[in-house]
Structure formats: C-alpha cells, structure tokens
Design a protein around this nucleic acid. Structure first.
Lengths: 324, 324
DNA sequence: CTGTTAGCGCCTTCAC
DNA sequence: GTGAAGGCGCTAACAG
C-alpha cells in the first residue's frame, strides 16, 4: 500500500497533525521536527493522496472539459492549450467527448458532477431552456464555448455572425456575382444546438446585395454542387468551415475547374492543415489559444470568486489566400 | 451544499446503511423501503460523490493519459478513441501533456499518482533505466505507447522497424536509384527517448541495396534538401512522418519539380489530412483506433487482474498513392 | 431486513 | 509546538 501521513507520523514518533504541519508549511512547528518529517516523507516516498484531500477540502482542482470530439482540429487545439494553461495554475483536466449526442452529453455532465469537478467547460449540442436550468441546478461554475446554451450561462467565442458577415462582404468586394454558401444542414437546429453554424449563416444571409446566392445546407453538398453550373456566373463558394472548403477544392480539382480563375473558394477556421493545401485557402482566422486561455482564466476565477464571468468575444481576421 | 446519503437517510427515516443498500442494489432490503429511498433520492437530486467512494474503495475508475501534445494528429485521434472506449467501460480520462519535456513528464506522472489514477497510459520521452524503475515503484499499472521505455513496462505500438523496412523495399521495388531519408535529428536520442523514430530509421538503414542513400536527420531538412541536386538520379524522398512529407511536397511544388515523375515522395502515418493533398501521398497506414482499444483494454485488465499484459504489436499497411 | 460502527487519508479545530 | 479528535461522504462488516 501507499505511504500515508500516518506512516510518517509513526516513523517520526509524532502525531499526524504535526506531519501535516510540516508537509504543508503551516508553521507552528519546531524546525527540527519539520526537517525530520520532511526527510522521512521523502525517504518513504510519500505522495499525498489528493482524493482524500479533495474530500475534506470539497475541492478537486479539476476542470471538466466536454466537447464533441478531437477529430475537429478546433477542439484538439483548444484542449491542448487548455491543458497547458490549467496545469500552470495547478488545475487538472478531465476530458469527455459527446460525439454530438445529447444523451451522451448529459451523461458526461453528470459524471463530471459526480466526480466533483470544480468547474465545467462545455461545448453543448443542447439549447433547451430546461437543459440550461438543469445545468445551473448543479450549482457549479460552467462556461460554454462555440455553441451558446442560454444567456444565463457564460459564453466564450468569436462573433460568428460578424465574421461571416465580413467574409461575405469581402467576397462581394472581390467582384463575385454569385455566392454559393455551403453549410451542414441548418434544419438540424430543431434537434441540436448549432448556434455557431446558425450565426455564421445569418451573417452571410444578412448581406443583401445584388448578387445571386445559392444556399446548400446539406451533407451531400458535393452532389448538389454537381447539379449546378458553377462557372455560369463569376461564382465564389463560401464554406462554413475549412473542412468543407477542402472537400470543395478537391471536387473542383477533379472537375478541372480552375481556382480562383473560374471559381473562388473561401473557408472558415484557418485550421493548421491549410498550409499543406494548394491553392492556399482564403479563410477566417482566430486564435484557439486565446479562446482556451480565456476559458481557463474565466472558469478558475469563477471557481475562486463564485462570480459569474462575462461573456467574452474573441477577435478574428480574414486571411487572404489564393483561392479567391 | 450537495445532497448526501445522510440527507436521504434523514428524509426517509432510515439509516445511511439502508440508503446505501437501495442506491447500490445490494439486496437485503424491503422493496418498499428501496422504492422510497430511490424516489426521494431522485426527488432531492442526489448525485453520488465519487471522490468519497474512491477514497473508501481505493479506486477512482480513472485512467491517466500522458502524451506529448494534441497537435500531432496521432495523439488527438488516439485520445479520441481512448475516451470512447474507456467511457464504455466506465472509466474516465485524466489528460496531461508533456510537450516533449522530461521535467514536465515527471511532474505529470507524479500528479497522476497523487490523484490516484488506477492506471497510466504513457508516451514517454524518457528511457533511462532509473526512470523505468521510478515508474514501476509507484506500483500502479502502466502501459507505454510509441516510445518504449524499457522491456519491463508493457508496450503497444506498430513494428516501426519492420514497417519502414518494408516501405524502403517498396521504394526499391518501384525502381528508384536513390533514397533520401528525412527524419528529425536522430542524435536527440542522447537526451530524449525517440524509440519510434530510431526504429523507423533502423528499418530503413537495414535495407542494403545497390541504391545510394542520403540521410537528412535535421530540423532544417528543407534547407539541406535544397543543397542537393535531387533530380540527378531517380530519387525517392522517404520521410519518417507524413508531416515532413507534406512539407517536402510543398517544397517540391514551389521548386516546380514534378511528383512523382521527377522525384518520388513517401510518408508515414497516413494522417487524416492527406485526403486533401495532391498528389495523394504514398504512406504507411495503421489504426490509431486499434492502438487505443488495445491500450484501454490492456490497462483495464491490468488494473483488474494485476497481471502485467504482454506487449502488443499493431498491424500496418502500405497505402499506394500518386506520389511515388 | 435494518441500524450501527469503523474506517478510507487528509485537514482543521481545539486543547494542552 | 504538539497531540487528540472530529469529520468530509461513502462503503463494508457486523449485530441484531
């Protein structure tokens, strides 16, 4: 069995209280006893049991992180930075993935609660008010990312609406006559929280100009694209995420359609892998590190002060590539 | 404060023992009392405190995972699959990242120990025997991945040696006269565990054929490549990982060197992003999901039976692309 | 069938 | 300066 505080106490012929004083720098202890205790602790290879400490302190120094998956580079990059910044502040990471399932998400949240995380960072597929209430009833600090759950739960993200709005204007400014907007099914909003996607779409849709526009919100967007004579007008294809844009680039290459001469393409997210793709993709960039840092700082101060932090908006910028 | 077992006991006018029996299906309880207890537990919104349970059970149902970072798609994909499979078996994930630092790794391990993880899955940059001993002295199940720490700690990976060996032979078979092998600095092995990279290199180096070969093991491989007249012979560039191969592809495109007509390129890992790259990269593929499943199964059976599992070798295969 | 009790390992309070 | 004792929330062993 592992060495406990009691083993040290016995070995030193002092009480457990004294060992605790030595180990945790609490003062009120004779330097020699402290020295003795620390030395024997080291000799015995003592490692404090944080579980026991957590139980008495009512604090685990653990942050629960619940996101969709790690395939999405947004999340893997985010969690990478979160781990770094949490560790710096002496917090640890419990990770759980929902794979876009409302059920799994609920279970993950419950598990985190049972495991007594001090706070929760959540990218949710829920947005029912009952769910928001359910979350808040756990009475622990919770912060949401990317998909807003409700106005009463702090939310950190870029302004998707504005960003896509600007992207659309940028395309207009570039002289395109027609925009094809590609997104995952927006009708999903009936069953899932797709806040971020909706906002992006709204940002696009709001730009009322002389252009024509075609909206493809389907998982079969390439098939649908195939039914359109894309070179008929000076067309730009605007995608709600880089992944889609990459698929579109591939599609156009297969079709021997020149980019950007015949058709322009624009993405969103500026994922890392873009640097290996040709032509370089015009896209919208933002810092996952900044989102991660904001999230960790917010949740920790929320934990420590029990004051609900404000929503935070992270900046973005358009990256000009050769695809538009 | 959160509802405890005692609150329920009080509310039901029974003892805490009885509540425990009801909540945990232990039998020896009158159906009506059980029903009453369960109902009031639900009504009060009781959530068991797993920290307390862990303390008494000496088991946290938590697996610590320590890897380098999540930028590397190998790790993010791995952890994605690990989380899924751990959750299925009612285990949770504590994640820590070392960023290739020996110091950070040591601290991460210690933290995991303090937090009483039931088992540890580790991709290490250490390979000192003292470190292996240090790890084993913690006396908890540990499994290593990708980089072997020592023969006395279970290790799961593909056979890097054999895989690169076969890759090299494949290139030979394709009729190339010269191979340029690109790898991160192999001299790092003096300060870091780069087992997997070494094995790959050995696998390449072992193939003694008539070909010429050039070895570039440097972070400035593109600069060095630039000093070589690569089209002088029928040359293939074999990279120890896809990321390098992608950089090489970019380099060759900039140089207007045709792939594969003038120079062939081969990678290793078959990362997801390859599907967006042209020409499609010839590479070595293996299943991170299988590694993840093996790891999780191994560590859990190690935890439950306390029998050190055998090393496991995951299969690989060569993927023929258009780059060679 | 149910209640009581003694911990798990640690921290904290209160005596001395 | 130090020791003793109680308790965090839960489980388990024993009594009844």
């Amino acid at each position: 069995m592992a060495i406990t505080i009691k083993n040290i106490a016995d070995a030193c012929n002092v009480s457990r209280g004294t060992v605790d004083r030595a180990l945790n720098d609490r003062g009120n202890i004779k330097p020699e006893t402290k020295k003795l205790v620390l030395e024997t602790a080291k000799k015995l290879g003592y490692k404090p049991n944080y579980i026991a400490r957590s139980l008495v302190k009512g604090k685990t120094n653990t942050i629960g992180i619940i996101v969709f998956n790690l395939y999405n580079e947004f999340f893997s990059s985010l969690i990478n930075h979160m781990e770094v910044n949490a560790r710096k502040k002496n917090y640890y990471i419990n990770l759980a993935l929902t794979h876009y399932s409302k059920d799994i998400e609920r279970k993950c949240v419950e598990n985190m609660i049972k495991r007594q995380v001090d706070g929760l960072i959540l990218c949710s597929v829920h947005n029912e008010l009952t769910y928001s209430k359910w979350l808040q009833d756990f009475n622990i600090p919770i912060i949401t990312l990317a998909n807003k759950v409700s106005d009463s739960i702090p939310y950190i993200s870029i302004n998707d609406h504005l960003a896509m709005n600007e992207a659309t204007k940028y395309i207009t400014y570039k002289g395109y006559e027609r925009i094809i907007y590609i997104s995952p099914p927006l009708s999903n909003k009936k069953v899932l929280n797709i806040y971020s996607l909706e906002k992006r779409f709204e940002g696009f849709n709001e730009v009322k100009t002389k252009q024509q526009s075609i909206i493809i919100d389907s998982n079969d967007y390439l098939d649908i694209l195939n039914t359109i004579n894309i070179t008929e007008y000076k067309t730009a294809i605007l995608c709600s995420s880089d992944i889609y844009a990459l698929e579109v680039l591939n599609y156009l290459k297969v079709k021997k359609i020149n980019i950007p001469d015949q058709v322009g393409v624009m993405g969103f997210d500026n994922i890392n892998m873009l640097k290996y793709v040709e032509p370089s993709l015009t896209t919208v960039s933002y810092s996952t590190e900044q989102i991660a840092i904001s999230s960790i700082n917010s949740i920790i101060s929320y934990i420590n002060n029990n004051i609900k932090p404000d929503n935070q908006v992270i900046s973005y910028k358009i990256i000009e590539g050769q695809s538009l």
